[in-house]
């Protein structure tokens, strides 16, 4: 199954920038789209916390019939990569079905951030997608 259309648009955009610096600038542009939710609007709890993510990220899922909307709280102000990932997943997974979400390969993290990602950062960002899948399958 192909990636959801909106998510694929992000990947296609990044693929246009093979130069590392251009990719970084593009990712920072995505991170700028991220809007940090307050704790009142988006209560954090351990069940929605992304494991292995040093940026302290929480995932929230809203279900509308058989489609989903995800929200992400990145509580570490230095978590720029997590903010970029949050912006991509928020828009890229919107209105997807659980089947579409399950079909997304973890490897998109490398498509987004490139192969120079450190092991720790890779795990945290991949887990943002995995927790999103997990919540979608639970709902």
């Amino acid at each position: 199954m192909a990636n959801p259309t909106k998510l694929q648009e992000y990947l296609d955009t990044l693929a246009m920038f093979p130069d590392r610096q251009d990719r970084i600038e593009t990712l920072i542009g995505f991170a700028d789209e991220y809007k940090h939710p307050s704790r009142e609007a988006f209560p954090r709890d351990e069940n929605s916390k992304v494991p292995g993510c040093e940026s302290e990220v929480y995932v929230r899922l809203t279900k509308m019939e058989d489609r989903f909307r995800f929200g992400y709280a990145v509580d570490n102000p230095q978590g720029i990569s997590a903010m970029a990932m949050a912006a991509i997943l928020t828009a890229g997974l919107e209105n997807c079905t659980v089947q579409e979400i399950n079909a997304i390969d973890d490897q998109i993290v490398f498509e987004i951030f490139g192969n120079e990602l450190s092991m720790g950062k890779n795990l945290g960002l991949t887990n943002m997608l995995r927790v999103s899948k997990h919540l979608a399958n639970l709902s």
């Binding site: 920072i28 991170a31 230095q78 720029i80 970029a84 120079e116 450190s118 720790g120």
Partner: peptide, 20 residues
């Protein structure tokens, strides 16, 4: 460690040295 941090904002006048 995070390559996105410096270009997203740094101390005015600071240069970046990337360890890799």
């Amino acid at each position: 460690e995070d390559a996105l941090l410096y270009p997203s904002g740094h101390i005015p006048g600071a240069y970046e040295i990337d360890w890799t």
